[in-house]
């Protein structure tokens, strides 16, 4: 079976600073994976490398067997910050952009999602609150019938009601065969969703485990496990 994501010996350096070192990671299709790590650990960089946005890496990154950035992008739906649009653009214009640019964009899924997330796409981008903007980004990202979804800190700075709605939409609209990687440092928000956990520490992946394995082997919840790894209570030998 082809892995959804297969990364081998990935090294990434920028501005003379090592950001990722010897990253090797395989993710199977159909899983929801938490990419955890403190601020600046390299979570966003790893996602941007998978999506082909960061350049100059050494090593190989394959998404469903595709190794070039352009072909990988066809399989990946990344939660981008909509920086390419003008503040005066209406959400419906952004929807039209996505519908035209991405062959796997589903107009029905989009409509269901914005209805569920209570978004009026007649509004202008500049008028959205942070929470609504984040919900709209999630709606666009999930509206694609992609094989891999990369959600980069989807809950940062938004209220609990919006968070709950976003989590519900992830559960409801993710296809069974699709892999979803969610990066965050607020673990409690997403712990219940996760099938697997990948922790980035000291510029590399320090552990990759299934959620049930963490509970069974360490007797800990995901949040406690993550904190233990970062505080050094669990040593590398125990992995």
């Amino acid at each position: 079976m082809t892995e959804a994501i297969d990364i081998t010996n990935l090294n990434y350096r920028r501005n003379t600073k090592q950001i990722l070192t010897n990253v090797t990671l395989q993710l199977n299709p159909g899983k929801i994976v938490g990419l955890l790590g403190e601020n600046g650990a390299g979570k966003t960089t790893l996602m941007r490398l998978i999506a082909g946005l960061a350049k100059g890496e050494k090593g190989t990154i394959a998404v469903h067997g595709q190794t070039t950035a352009a072909t990988r992008r066809a399989f990946v739906s990344f939660s981008e910050a909509l920086q390419g649009f003008r503040p005066g653009d209406k959400l419906s214009q952004i929807r039209d952009f996505y519908a035209l640019a991405y062959p796997d964009f589903s107009a029905k899924k989009y409509l269901d999602l914005i209805t569920f997330l209570q978004i009026d796409d007649d509004q202008k981008l500049a008028t959205l609150s942070k929470g609504t903007r984040e919900k709209f980004i999630i709606a666009l990202t999930l509206s694609r019938e992609a094989a891999v979804y990369l959600l980069d800190e989807p809950f940062s700075g938004i209220d609990s009601m919006s968070r709950k709605r976003i989590i519900s939409s992830i559960i409801r609209w993710k296809q069974d065969s699709a892999t979803m990687v969610i990066s965050d440092h607020y673990v409690s928000e997403i712990a219940a969703l996760l099938d697997e956990v990948v922790i980035i520490k000291d510029h590399t992946i320090c552990t990759h485990k299934r959620s049930d394995q963490i509970r069974r082997e360490f007797g800990l919840g995901i949040e406690a496990f993550y904190e233990s790894v970062y505080e050094g209570d669990i040593s590398d030998d125990q992995f």
């Binding site: 946005l53 920086q83 390419g84």
Partner: peptide
């Protein structure tokens, strides 16, 4: 210049 360094466009599944 904005297009070529924007995530919105660089994420499109097409060659550079």
């Amino acid at each position: 210049e904005q297009v070529v360094i924007s995530d919105t466009y660089r994420l499109l599944p097409t060659s550079d």
